[in-house]
Simulated assay, not measured.
Amino acid sequence: MALDSNATKPHDRLAQALADEMAAVNALIRDRMASEHAPRIPEVTAHLVEAGGKRLRPMLTLAAARLLGGAGDRAVKLAATVEFIHTATLLHDDVVDESTRRRGRPTANLLWDNKSSVLVGDYLFARSFQLMTECNSLAVMAVLANASAVIAEGEVLQLTAAQNLGTTEAVYLQVIRGKTAALFAAACEVGAMVAGGSAAQVAAMRAYGDALGIAFQMADDLLDYGGTSAIGKNIGDDFRERKLTLPVIRAVAAADATERAFWERVIEKGDQREGDLDEALRLMRRHGTLEATRAEANAWAETARAALAEMPKHPVQAMLADLAAYVVARLT
């Protein structure tokens, strides 16, 4: 199909290039999220699935397959599998984080209850495994099963590291590699696998997804201290939830005794007062941790772009390279 020249964002151009496959993915998602016996399941799922998300992860699966000649129905099923895994983790995350907003709308746990969110998330995980078996590839199943385990591990690690000022940059990287990058990497990897990519090409797409996911999450963590409500959450949500993201970890590491006492009060003890978010921002700016995190995100974006050198020259390859740059450029 002809691309709209007015589409300036890389993910919009990618969505246009993959429009037919994405339509098939969306139709499959609607079909498989149905339940004959439990109407609560499609109610909860539809609230999140149809909330206008970018469908970035399934697009990565389709894009990787397209780069290597496409994989038809198998790629579509795997893209839907990836989206089901992602949606299941969002339902669980909102319960764990006691969130009230997701993609600019009230969360499912707020509209229904925690039990519904957890159980429907479990249902979507089960659906994802049903779908992946239909591709008849144990290697593909292993990649997605491993990713699911790593995602859960990352979430548990984040839970145990929360409010702990001893959390290091290495632990933070392990957390975001689990909770975000693992599914980006797997989405890219299985797309390349079902399209018959070489071992080097499959590894390159996995490396691209891993680095893209890390850059994406670092940028998201920065947006919490300088974005807008349009991103679907309020400014300072991570601060109020006492999450140790990279800008805070670096500010704590550079803190003097007075500053450390501040971080202990607001993060470890949860004693947050009027003006504390502004003070946290002042300290992060003082030590340059926001700009340092931006530079780190840019470096990971460049790592993602470099991984694409293994892939065939193709319009989709250029879109993926632009996407890596955009996930950080959206900060400006």
Rank of each mutant, 00 (worst) to 15 (best):
F129S: 02
T8Y: 09
L246N: 07
F262R: 12
A23S: 08
L3G: 14
L246K: 08
T167A: 07
P312L: 05
E241L: 13
L277N: 09
L281N: 13
L14K: 12
L138I: 13
D113P: 01
A147V: 02
V328T: 06
L157N: 04
A51I: 09
I176K: 01
D12A: 15
Q16V: 09
R74M: 10
L223V: 06
A142K: 15
D276A: 11
G72N: 08
H11T: 14
A149R: 01
L138V: 14
L323G: 11
A301Q: 09
L111E: 06
L138Y: 07
I151V: 14
E310V: 00
L18T: 07
G53A: 02
A207V: 02
K54L: 00
H37G: 05
L183I: 10
I85R: 06
N26I: 01
G236N: 01
A215Y: 04
A253S: 08
G52Q: 06
L159Q: 14
M193N: 08
M193A: 05
D224N: 04
I235D: 08
E169R: 13
R260W: 07
V76N: 13
A253N: 10
D113V: 09
Y123I: 13
R105C: 03
V25D: 11
G166F: 12
I231G: 00
V95M: 03
R55H: 02
A108V: 13
F216H: 03
R282Q: 13
R242M: 05
Q174F: 11
L119M: 13
A230K: 07
A187D: 04
A329E: 15
R74D: 14
P42C: 08
M33D: 13
G53I: 01
Y208R: 01
